[in-house]
Nucleic acid binder design. Structure first.
Lengths: 231, 231
DNA sequence: TGACATTGGTGACGAATTGTTACTAATTCG
DNA sequence: CGAATTAGTAACAATTCGTCACCAATGTCA
């Protein structure tokens, strides 16, 4: 055991500079995309995550919603904090502390303002080091939560086909899923309900539309799944 | 779609007051326990979470480690951020923003200082509202991550019996597990390896000691488990 | 000393779940 | 019309899971 400090803890708050950095994620063709904004020409990198300080009395998620509305024109369907950073890495506004927030937005909702653009997660331009860290955390958090939270449904419009849903899961998980298994598991979960509409996309059989409508789950308590460990 | 703002986003950092609030968790007899410190008599509640502001240049987890060392005399085995709060709820130091951090410490490590005490998670004394929120978040995060992360091993000494391990899982999950199933799943996961030591606790057959020694997992990629949804 | 209580540990079997194959259905294209 | 394409499902085999039953090694106590 280590030596005990002689003086007790005398806690005190400290003033610091704070920013909320938002990773807006949306499914694009064949990849998850992140919304970046063009930085002022004085900045070191051309692009950055949308960010701002929370206003006085404004919650962190409220700030994230406001920032997203400004750059996308629509509030995201879902938020999740992905971590608060106070390492020394560079931030575009030189904030000492950054709160990273992932915001999920369905495909086709909103329209980026002139100075904003979607970039596939796998091929981002250069951004400030702290923003890079935040994006990586956001991707990791979303991928890790995808089968514990209805995240996938937040990346789709209210009505969707099961193929759409499977496609989003495949995007998020980064691997192909087997159609029959996917549907059987979904069926058993009572998470969606069929609508009376069909969607025809040109070729092939029209697909039935579903909506996210989770029913009370029967208490399916299972044993420990060590096979789910991620690290 | 909503109206687009006429002015673009002009991001700027804002100065604010920051605190790191630590939820030190450790398994006690039959329950998870939280370490609380006695508050100055001027405070509104008698007890509070250990907290402080991070020093200049000190990372958030580093601050949590320092705070824990002061009150427990030992650094925790594991940290996890459980969320950053900027709601209006009251904080003992009136910080505008709190970073909540869960710190896991094995049973029997360290010794609380005179003004600190363990309380079972289920029967805490009155604490500031924001601290209450942070504790609840910490418990939820730990319970949710327990079968994705080797959290349980961080609540045990380096050598432990399988009954000990099962006990920690039962504490965290809040329900009994079946011995044979638990061991079979653990076996298949290659997370532990047996040592050449046995532990005799008085009555009953002595138990073999194991250590946490995760082997490379064969890529057991499975289908989506909708049955794991927590909300 | 020898039953018995207590805790550790495992084989085995039926039930449930999962991975896969192979099929049917409904549509467009040429 | 038939081929191509996408949607949807029945059914079978392989695997995993929940449980029961049992054996092993120790302390307790009559």
């Amino acid at each position: 055991m280590r030596d005990r400090p002689v003086v007790l803890l005398k806690p005190a708050v400290r003033r610091t500079t704070l920013a909320v950095d938002v990773v807006v994620l949306s499914p694009r063709v064949d990849a998850l995309a992140v919304l970046l904004v063009r930085a002022p020409s004085s900045a070191r990198e051309r692009w950055s995550l949308p960010w701002d300080a929370p206003q006085v009395g404004e919650g962190l998620e409220d700030a994230a919603a406001r920032i997203t509305r400004v750059v996308l024109g629509a509030a995201p369907a879902f938020f999740e904090q992905v971590g608060t950073l106070s390492d020394g890495r560079r931030h575009p506004g030189d904030a000492e502390v950054s709160v990273g927030i992932a915001a999920l937005s369905p495909a086709g909702v909103g329209q980026p303002i002139m100075d904003a653009e979607w970039f596939p997660l796998a091929s981002l331009p250069a951004i400030a080091p702290r923003h890079r860290t935040i994006v990586d955390h956001a991707a990791a958090v979303v991928r890790q939560r995808v089968d514990q939270s209805p995240l996938a449904f937040r990346l789709l419009p209210p009505a969707f086909t099961l193929s759409d849903l499977q496609g989003v899961y495949e995007l998020l998980l980064g691997r192909r899923l087997h159609k029959a298994s996917f549907r059987r598991a979904l069926q058993a979960s009572y998470l969606v309900e069929p609508m009376d509409e069909w969607h025809s996309e040109g070729r092939g059989r029209p697909a039935q539309l579903f909506r996210y409508a989770p029913k009370k789950r029967r208490g399916v308590r299972r044993g420990v799944r060590f096979d789910l460990f991620t690290d």
